[in-house]
């Protein structure tokens, strides 16, 4: 009881005495939480979008000519040899014509003069769900190109490639901003606490002389670290949430961004970020105060 009374009074004094640098630290922690959480949010949304996109991934193998039944079976076997698939569909020239006409709808009369077999026959391959990494799709398509009678394989290569490198880049950015968060949280807090300790060196020395236990001296500083971590992450995340609301209000609606069903970070992630930043800040203050106590 009296222990906590003393601890809170001491923490209050620390805050009063060094509020300017405390504020700086607090802002730095908030900002790094914001930066990290922002990139992480973009990352999860991109991953989400890429998952949704890859639901629709299909490889279309255009064939030189319409395969007979025997040929079809041979092709089926070959494709399944490479890998299991979700589905393989043969599309004859007539089917392709019919689909095209359907797609044109009212304008389908432009096709009237065309021969019914002007579109090539093709095979639609829908790969297994688990097998959807960009590199695997690429390998698969290379394999499909070598099938007998295959003319070319299409699956939106360029687009996928860009998307793939974008997610790679994002991963790196997330890792970097995560490191930034760790460094700022730990070192900034360690630094401010060291500043406080230096400013109150005489007092802390005296406390030791009159018999203050290490935990009596340490706890107020740990409390400060916890406070910094908690407040910093809460403010950082709140700012991100505000930004998120703003973006989803202003950029939702039709268009490319529809691809992204914006979702905010999951509660478990939010809680983890709060706890991790509390942990880091406490660690920072712990190392500083421990250095002092060892002397």
């Amino acid at each position: 009881m009296n222990f906590w009374l003393a601890v809170f009074r001491q923490a209050g004094r620390n805050l009063r005495q060094t509020w300017a640098s405390q504020l700086m630290t607090f802002l730095t922690v908030s900002l790094s939480v914001l930066i990290f959480a922002f990139f992480y949010l973009v990352y999860t949304n991109t991953i989400g979008a890429s998952d949704r996109l890859s639901e629709d991934i299909r490889l279309i193998v255009y064939l030189e000519e319409e395969p007979g039944t025997a040929m079809q079976e041979q092709l089926l076997r070959k494709i399944n040899n490479f890998d299991k698939t979700e589905e393989i569909r043969f599309i004859s020239k007539a089917d392709a014509y019919k689909r095209f006409a359907e797609q044109l709808g009212d304008d389908s009369d432009v096709l009237a003069d065309m021969p019914k077999d002007f579109l090539p026959a093709s095979i639609e391959v829908i790969p297994l769900k688990g097998l959807r990494g960009f590199n695997q799709i690429k390998l698969f398509s290379e394999y499909l190109t070598q099938l007998p009678g295959s003319e070319k394989v299409q699956y939106g290569q360029e687009w996928m490639e860009r998307f793939y490198y974008f997610t790679q880049l994002l991963t790196i950015v997330v890792l970097l901003s995560g490191t930034l968060l760790i460094l700022t949280a730990t070192f900034m807090v360690a630094y401010t606490i060291r500043l406080t300790i230096m400013g109150r060196h005489d007092e802390l020395e005296l406390l030791k002389l009159v018999g203050a236990t290490n935990s009596y001296i340490r706890t107020p500083f740990l409390l400060e670290g916890i406070l910094q971590g908690f407040m910093g992450s809460i403010i950082g995340l709140t700012a991100l949430y505000a930004l998120f609301r703003w973006i989803s209000i202003h950029f939702s609606g039709p268009g490319l961004l529809n691809l992204f069903h914006f979702t905010f970070l999951q509660p478990i992630i939010v809680i983890s970020i709060v706890f991790i930043s509390i942990g880091l800040c406490t660690l920072g203050s712990f190392t500083s105060i421990q250095k002092f106590l060892k002397i």
Binding site: K208, L209, V210, A212, T213
Partner: peptide, 13 residues
């Protein structure tokens, strides 16, 4: 550590 602290509490200087 704690032992020293407790002893010091019993010594007034």
């Amino acid at each position: 550590g704690k032992r020293l602290a407790h002893l010091r509490q019993k010594i007034g200087v």
